Amino acid sequence: MCSVLTRVRPIHRAVALTLRLGANTEGSSYVATQRKRFSPGVSSAAANGRFYCSRAAKTEGLLFRQLFEVESCTYTYLLADTNTKEAIIIDPVLETMDRDLTLVKELGLNLIFAVNTHCHADHITSSGLMKKRIAGLKSAISKHSGASADILLSEGDRIPFGKHYLIVKETPGHTDGCTTLVSGDESMAFTGDALLIRGCGRTDFQQGCAKCLYDSVHDKIFTLPDDCLVYPAHDYIGQTVSTVGEERKFNPRLTKSKDEFVDIMNSLNLPKPDKIDISVPANLVCGLHGL
């Protein structure tokens, strides 16, 4: 384990159609359907993938940006210490790398970590190419992902930037290597594909396991404070943020019993992700396969 990371003890503490369609499908055909249904007029900025938005962070001295990649409906998150300017980026996407690096430069940040919450199947990460552009940048992903990176993350690891840090929680179920990254003050949780807004990641490929996902969310995420902000890796209908309390109360799948949840996940019959045969091999080598 890289010396910059330290270990801590884990922190303790709808209708049938909605149930079937409310989760991550990791397929552009589904994305296109949902975009047409909910967003008939997509702005030119969103269409060319340059759109991004920001959200206020509750933690003093923390800079936070939420960015969006339109094709895969992926959220990328940039966090930085406003004093030291040390920064990390979560789930960066190849197509929006120039946009992200431009923002880093404009804000005068020193990007030190590029972290992937899991080995994505619907897009290629830009973490490998970012390392070629930024001296000293290190990539990170779960040790259970099977992917290569400078830092292989485990339960309880801290990812520091300035006076701030994220704590790693292992939340398998969508894939074996899924992690949720929780801010040190438990005000924010970056849940990857484990927990989406009123949904969750699919469990029918890449070591998927519905029982494991149910336990991960209930044991590692739903035990966080009610007002902890939930920032997922994807959203297909324009939602940007939720809270642990909301999802614990309103998530149409994860409010069910474990047996009901497993039945729901096993009956989704979702199409194969459009880019899985390209994205997974690339993401296993930090996005550099064939590049």
Rank of each mutant, 00 (worst) to 15 (best):
P40G: 05
A46G: 04
L63Y: 15
D259K: 08
S29E: 10
T171W: 03
C2T: 07
T223W: 01
S54Q: 14
I141T: 13
C2M: 09
T175H: 07
L181A: 08
D235E: 14
R35P: 00
N24I: 07
H123M: 11
A14L: 11
A140H: 14
F205H: 13
I88A: 04
I276F: 02
C119S: 11
K36C: 10
L254R: 09
A57I: 08
V31E: 05
V217F: 04
L288C: 05
S43Y: 10
T243G: 10
F51V: 10
K275M: 02
I124E: 02
A14F: 04
Y30I: 13
D91V: 02
N83K: 10
Y214A: 08
V42D: 02
D227S: 09
G192H: 07
C228S: 01
S29R: 12
L268M: 15
S126R: 09
T223G: 00
A23S: 14
L229T: 06
K105A: 14
N24L: 07
G156C: 11
L19F: 00
K85G: 10
Q66L: 15
S126Y: 13
C178P: 01
E60Y: 00
D100Q: 15
H218N: 15
V217P: 01
I197L: 11
L94Q: 02
M130S: 14
T179I: 15
V217W: 01
I134A: 10
H123I: 03
A16M: 02
R7G: 02
L21S: 11
P10C: 06
T125I: 02
K272D: 10
I124P: 03
L284P: 03
V230E: 00
P172K: 11
G22P: 07
S279T: 02
L107F: 03
C178R: 06
P273G: 10
V8Q: 12
L21I: 03
L213A: 03
A45K: 15
G177P: 10
N251Y: 12
S145F: 06
L94C: 00
P232I: 02
L19W: 01
S43P: 07
R9P: 00
D263V: 04
I88M: 06
G177F: 13
I159R: 12
